[in-house]
């Protein structure tokens, strides 16, 4: 199966945009909103990664004859 490069760009883009937004929110003085933005972005990326890692585990289980 081909590697989906889109997800790499998506993660990097989300990270940079979130860093930008957090900096702006900190400058404005809304520290609690900045915390929420960090948390939501982290959960979003973690969800994407978890699906990829789950697929990897399934593949390993099927290739190496684990039941």
């Amino acid at each position: 199966m081909p590697i989906d490069v889109d997800l790499i760009f998506k993660i990097a883009g989300v990270g940079l945009i979130v860093a930008f937004i957090v900096t702006i929110l900190d400058q404005v003085g809304k520290k609690e909103y900045a915390q929420w933005v960090i948390l939501v972005s982290f959960i979003y990326i973690l969800f994407n990664i978890a699906s990829v890692v789950g697929e990897l585990m399934d593949k390993i289980r099927s290739v190496f004859l684990f039941q």
Partner: peptide, 15 residues
Amino acid sequence: LSFLLVVFVGSSIFL
């Protein structure tokens, strides 16, 4: 997030 990116690159290369 950089750590998650590294995990993703590793698993996609194996896939």
